[in-house]
Amino acid sequence: MNRLLTYMSIFFAALILMGATITPSHADGAGEIKNRQLVMKALGAHMGAMGNILKGQGGNSGHLTLHASAIANLATLAQDAFPAGSGPEAGKTRALANIWESGSGFQKVLANFKVNADALAKAGQSDDKAAFGKAMGNLGKDSCGTCHKDYRMKEK
């Protein structure tokens, strides 16, 4: 009887341990790459749509604020889109390995992205078009551009 209990407790302990390793959503590096690419695509689509509106080429200028808050949300999602193990070793990605190297400055750029995106969302709530354009330019140059220059592989 005692022996049975021991076996059972080992069995359940093993089950719990297995569960613990499966539970986190990002067990698969390739899946994480996919997630990151989708988040980035969504970001690009909202930025492009805002650009289209600001250039007067289509869309509704009353929707800028919705795009801006979507970008602020996507910036939050982006904070978790670069987990360890989702670099070039995990599959086809243009994310450079230096993202995961300490001292490369990436975490600072990523955190700053959220700050810039929130500033854009805030600017979107006022009617100040010039301030909005400035916030968008700042986000574009300081975050999108900097990151793509230093942490994204050049096209081959």
């Binding site: 690009g44 650009g51 289209n52 968008m136 140059k141």
Partner: peptide, 19 residues
């Protein structure tokens, strides 16, 4: 600001040019 018509942002050498 470095944004292409599709909303992507240039990287590489052109990002330096845009700066």
């Amino acid at each position: 600001m470095g944004m292409l018509p599709d909303g992507d942002f240039v990287g590489g050498g052109m990002a330096e040019v845009v700066e």
